[in-house]
């Protein structure tokens, strides 16, 4: 039988199927693994160290998301409205690079910049603040990029200029036009930012250290305990991936 060109489409479906199986089975396997030792995993959910790590993870991720809104939305506005020399470079360094930055390198930089030997004479290493700083650097750009994209769409329509012609000063245009028309996009950026902050490891590991009940979060708990406290690490994995999945689903609903 001659393999006609139209039959090549089967190859596409086959390749797509393989990658789907790989991705989804990886996600589901944590639950399958937990079924085998269900009662032990269930018990681990009550482990005070894991619960504290979860609390710190949630708290630092929410603090990061809040700070990302407070600082990221104004930055998106400035990047939308202001034209200046070197803007492309500034935007790349502040928004694009952090999203792809190796988190462990980020942790190293913060350790040098804000650690025990800081040239600024502030030592924030091994503190809750260090957790938030490490998470903020790589997560906040999601809020900035989503919001900037939407703000630019609004600017493109000229609605901001129409609002100004009606008497609104630039700040009123920001609060009455840009913000309400961008709720969905800001929300989507925040849910991705929060999700990324929940899973951040490298920066926290190096800059905030892993001090149980103080700076230990779920990802650093998993990284340090996976081989010795496997059941607890699995319980922690389920907690963090489920939380992130819920955040991503909410993001999908928003967009």
């Amino acid at each position: 039988m001659k393999f006609g060109t139209k039959n090549y489409i089967v190859i596409l479906y086959f390749l797509a199927g393989l990658v789907l199986i790989f991705s989804i089975s990886t996600f589901l396997y944590q639950y399958i693994a937990a079924v085998g030792s269900f009662s032990a995993v269930l018990g681990a959910f009550g482990n005070s160290r894991i619960l504290t790590a979860l609390g710190l993870s949630l708290l630092s991720a929410f603090a990061t998301a809040a700070l990302a809104i407070i600082f990221g939305v104004p930055l998106a506005y400035v990047l939308t409205m202001k034209e200046f020399k070197g803007k492309l470079l500034v935007e790349t360094l502040a928004v694009d690079v952090p999203q792809t930055f190796p988190p462990i390198a980020e942790g190293m930089i913060f350790l040098l910049m804000l650690g025990p030997n800081s040239p600024l004479h502030v030592n924030l290493a091994s503190t809750f603040t260090a957790l938030v700083i490490a998470k903020f650097f790589i997560s906040a750009p999601f809020v900035v990029s989503f919001t900037t994209r939407r703000f630019r769409e609004i600017k493109q329509t000229g609605m901001n200029l129409t609002a100004r012609s009606l008497g609104a000063n630039p700040f009123l245009v920001f609060t009455t036009i840009f913000i309400p028309l961008s709720f969905k996009d800001i929300g989507a950026g925040v849910s991705l930012c929060w999700s990324r902050a929940m899973g951040e490891l490298g920066g926290s590991l190096l800059f905030a250290s892993v001090i149980p009940y103080q700076t230990e979060i779920i990802p650093t708990f998993i990284a340090t305990q996976a081989k010795t406290l496997t059941i607890e690490a699995l319980a922690a994995t389920i907690l963090v991936t489920t939380a992130s999945t819920l955040a991503i689903i909410s993001f999908k609903k928003l967009t």
């Binding site: 329509t157 000229g158 200029l161 129409t162 100004r164 012609s165 009606l166 008497g167 609104a168 000063n169």
Partner: peptide, 12 residues
């Protein structure tokens, strides 16, 4: 612009 008191109807 906001102090000119000009009514403006853009194309869209």
């Amino acid at each position: 612009i906001e102090e000119r008191n000009i009514g403006y109807l853009p194309q869209d």
